[in-house]
Nucleic acid binder design. Structure first.
Lengths: 133, 133
DNA sequence: TCAACCTTGACACAACCGTGGTAAGGTTGG
DNA sequence: CCAACCTTACCACGGTTGTGTCAAGGTTGA
């Protein structure tokens, strides 16, 4: 049975086991299960749990908010609706000609994706884990 | 004194005046004020209030969630952090070679922006308002 | 002037969130 | 077999959300 049980995972990540179940119900981190239903946390999940903790703390976010961001990213229809509503802020279209704004947005996302690609170096995840052996 | 007072705005938008103040405190819609501090709702705000209502209902969102989306869009640092965490979902990099995934993401955003540009035709907003006269 | 608005601030209250605990029962490994 | 885990499903409980109402005071317009 490879992978840490919920209590072990709790100890190495700083979450309580109770909260690990909660995090799972929020859809954020769902470890695979053993045949008998035990949660089995692998290095990826452990790392994600730690970075999640950091994310919340550094930006003052709640689990629910990150869960909402996840829902957004999984429901492009909803995401589009929200973004459209937000973009429609009272702002004279003459101020920023649409073309430029569009270019700006594209560049923003390209920048973002570049960073993402950089930070997602495949080996990095597993390496940091303490309990890999 | 042009613009509707809070109660008038409430009547035409279906929100209660109490909720209009709440919506404002969430940072979603802040009408300008008269010299004496009265809220004055213009056609833009009224339209946004109606579409907001629709947005919430159609997607089962809460004011707080839209408020969070707003915070996200105003704090690119936070947005980037959240997106990065979400993108790092357990997914074998071998499954989808990074290049293709990147292209897919870019295309997604271009599609989105195209739609946005289309729906943001400048005249549309003011036209639909009932109280323009 | 005076009724009918507006403002902010407070109290209230149900419903939900984050979190812990406990109970009843299954799994595991020595 | 048995201690020490695991599972789900509840109760609890303070904090936040969404919403109403009320109070004390300023503004407006006939």
């Amino acid at each position: 049975m490879d992978g840490l049980t919920i209590q072990e995972a709790a100890e190495t990540t700083g979450w309580s086991s109770r909260m690990l179940r909660y995090v799972e119900r929020e859809g954020l981190i769902a470890p695979r299960r053993s045949v008998s239903g035990y949660r089995l946390y692998g290095p990826e999940e452990l790392q994600r749990l730690r970075t999640l903790r950091g994310l919340l703390e550094r930006h003052g976010l709640s689990l629910g908010e990150v869960g909402f961001a996840l829902r957004l990213s999984r429901d492009p229809d909803m995401e589009r609706a929200v973004e459209l509503w937000l973009e429609a802020r009272p702002r004279r279209p003459e101020d920023v000609p649409a073309k430029d704004w569009l270019r700006f947005e594209q560049e923003k996302h390209q920048r973002l994706l570049a960073e993402a690609a950089q930070l997602t170096t495949p080996a990095a995840e597993a390496a940091t884990t303490t309990t890999t052996t």
